[in-house]
Structures are given as structure tokens and as C-alpha cells.
Amino acid sequence: MSWGWRKILSLRSVVRPFIWKVVRSGAQTNAWWDNWCQLSPLSSFITPRRITNAGFNLSSSLSDLVDENGNWKWPQAWYDLYPILIGLNAPHLTQNMVDRTVWKDLDGNSCSFRSSEVWHSIRCRQNPVLWVDGVWFSQCIPRHSFHLWLVIKNKLKTQDRLAAWEVGSVTNLNLMCCPLCRINRDSRDHLFFQCSFASKVWNKVKCMIQMDNVDSTWQSIMSWMEQNASSKKTEHIICKLVIAASAYFISQERNNCLFSNVSADQNAVIQRIKKTVHLRLMGFKFRRQSSIESLLRTWKIGSDEEANDPS
């Protein structure tokens, strides 16, 4: 059996609670293993030995357990062994009709089987975060947003994380300096944007988006993000684009210095950020407002844009 199929089959216990049978004739529903009633699966409390001793087998269908009068065929002694069965009435079976398999969502409602519904049902859930709309929004640049998500989750392969891998001697740890400034330890908080190289880049571009009150610390940037993430204002959308682009290109320059042994070029990074954001803004349509006129002039967006919000 291939690795892919083994992984799929390993999910059976996860998805089984959501797969139910709508009973009609009962012939296509396994009485013990399928979900067809509020006690399902019956195999969770009725043992295989009890099943076989009663004259049934593990592949018995639901129709095999109901007699012509609509009563259960199982032994009367089962009601003493499993009192929970007392409240379980035999289903009304309709001959010549096939049982139907359905997916039940988290609320217990039957719904169409879709991959999106499966994911919604089985995915892990955590408390919502305030910054999500600052990373993923309709005007974002997807690769920048994905990278920014990694930054926020502190999942970038910065060299400080090597300490968790027990790299060895103190000498090796001392070598883990920032490839851009060659001074401090390479880390997420240092790279965005306390590094002298990154700080100069950030201070140069943030003056173009009216974020003078946000300093070069990651905590300050996250505070701004949490306060303005869901804002639909043009100036805030541009700010989110610049934050993501700055993180992306600074990280890219850091990797170039580390793996390609090239010298960091501050002006080149600034120009890449400006060019990328400018090209993204060129795809927007703006409603003419005096509050954003200076911002549009800063980014050299023409005044002949059609009247509308960014979309």
C-alpha cells in the first residue's frame, strides 16, 4: 500500500463521526459499525462476542436485525446488559429503497459532501487573532502575505532557532550573527526591524505611508496591525502592503547575504519595495478624496484614476 493511501486511511477515525446513513431499506447499513442512530456505532459498547453469540455476525445489516413486525431480533437479555438500548426503537424500513450516505456538519445537519465542508468539520480551531485581516486581505500580494504570516508565527529559519537544535559549542552560537548588520544575533525581532540595515530601510519607506508613530520594533508594528487590520481605508491598505513587502524583501536580502555571500544593498531593497507596492497600487481604482491626495502623489499614482475604492 502506498504512503498516500496509508495517510488517507489513517484519517478514518477522524472523519467517521461525520459520515451517517439515512436508513431506508436497511440493507446497505451495517448495524454495528455505521452511524445510523443516536447510539451509533453500536460496536462501541456491544462486543463482537455478544454479537456472534446472539446469532449475528459483524457484517450484519440493519435489515437483518429487524423482523417482519418491525421489532428487534436481538436477545431480550441485551436490555439488561445494555440498558441504553431500551430507548432505541427499531427503524421503519422501506423495501426496494437504497440507504443513503450523508455528511453531517458540526451542528448535526445533513449537508452536501464537499472538501470545504470536510475541512471545516475536522480542522483544529483556536481563538481568532486580531491581525488576520492585516495579513490576508483582498488587495494583498499572496507571496508577501504568506511570508508575513510566517514572520508573525516566528516560523522563519532565523539562526537563533538553531539553538533549539543543540548546534553545539559556544563558538558556533557566536557565529550566528545577523548577515545584514554583522553585529547582533540573527532573530525575527532583530531582523524586523531593529537591525541597523533593516531599520534604515523601514524608516525610509514608512515615511511614505504616514506611519511615523510606529517605531522599528516588531511589538510596535504588531500593535498597529491589531488596531488597523480590518480597516478598509485606502491609507491603511497601503500601509499593510508596505509592511508585508518590507518584511519580504528584507528577508530576501538577508538570505542572499547568507547563502550567496553578496553584500547587502540598502538602496536596492528600498527600490524593490517601492516598485512592488507601486505596481500593486496601479491596479487599484481610487475614489478622489482630499485625505489621500498627498499619499497618492507620494506613490506617483496619476490623478486620472477612475472613481472607486481599491478593489
Rank of each mutant, 00 (worst) to 15 (best):
V14F: 07
V14G: 06
V14K: 13
V14Q: 14
V15M: 01
V15H: 00
P17I: 05
F18T: 08
F18P: 08
F18C: 08
F18K: 06
F18R: 01
F18W: 13
I19Y: 09
I19E: 03
K21N: 14
K21T: 07
V22N: 06
V22Y: 12
V23N: 04
V23S: 05
R24Y: 11
R24W: 07
S25G: 04
G26S: 06
G26E: 03
Q28M: 06
Q28P: 01
T29Q: 10
N30Q: 01
N30H: 01
N30I: 03
N30M: 05
A31Y: 04
W32P: 01
W33P: 00
D34P: 04
D34C: 05
N35F: 13
W36S: 06
W36M: 05
C37I: 08
C37T: 10
L39Y: 00
L39T: 00
S40K: 00
S40E: 02
P41N: 03
P41F: 00
L42V: 01
L42K: 02
S44P: 00
S44E: 07
F45H: 06
I46V: 14
T47R: 13
T47M: 10
P48A: 04
P48V: 02
R49A: 05
R49D: 15
R49N: 13
R50N: 15
R50L: 14
I51N: 11
I51V: 14
I51T: 10
T52Y: 13
T52M: 13
T52A: 11
T52V: 13
T52H: 12
T52R: 11
N53K: 12
N53G: 12
N53D: 14
A54L: 07
G55V: 02
G55K: 02
G55T: 00
G55W: 01
F56G: 08
F56T: 06
F56Q: 04
N57G: 15
N57T: 13
L58P: 00
L58W: 06
S59C: 12
S59F: 15
S59W: 11
S60P: 00
S61P: 07
S61G: 11
L62Q: 04
L62T: 00
S63F: 11
S63W: 03
S63Y: 01
S63I: 07
L65Y: 09
V66S: 03
V66N: 03
D67S: 06
E68P: 07
E68W: 11
E68V: 15
E68R: 10
G70A: 10
G70F: 05
G70V: 02
N71Y: 15
W72G: 07
W72D: 10
K73S: 06
W74E: 10
W74I: 11
Q76Y: 15
A77F: 13
A77W: 15
W78K: 07
W78N: 02
Y79S: 10
L81M: 14
L81S: 10
L81A: 14
L81D: 09
Y82M: 10
Y82I: 10
Y82H: 13
P83G: 12
P83W: 08
L85T: 04
L85W: 05
I86N: 09
L88H: 03
N89R: 06
A90I: 01
A90D: 00
P91K: 04
H92V: 12
H92G: 10
T94N: 07
M97F: 05
M97W: 08
V98Y: 09
V98F: 06
V98G: 08
D99N: 06
D99M: 08
T101N: 12
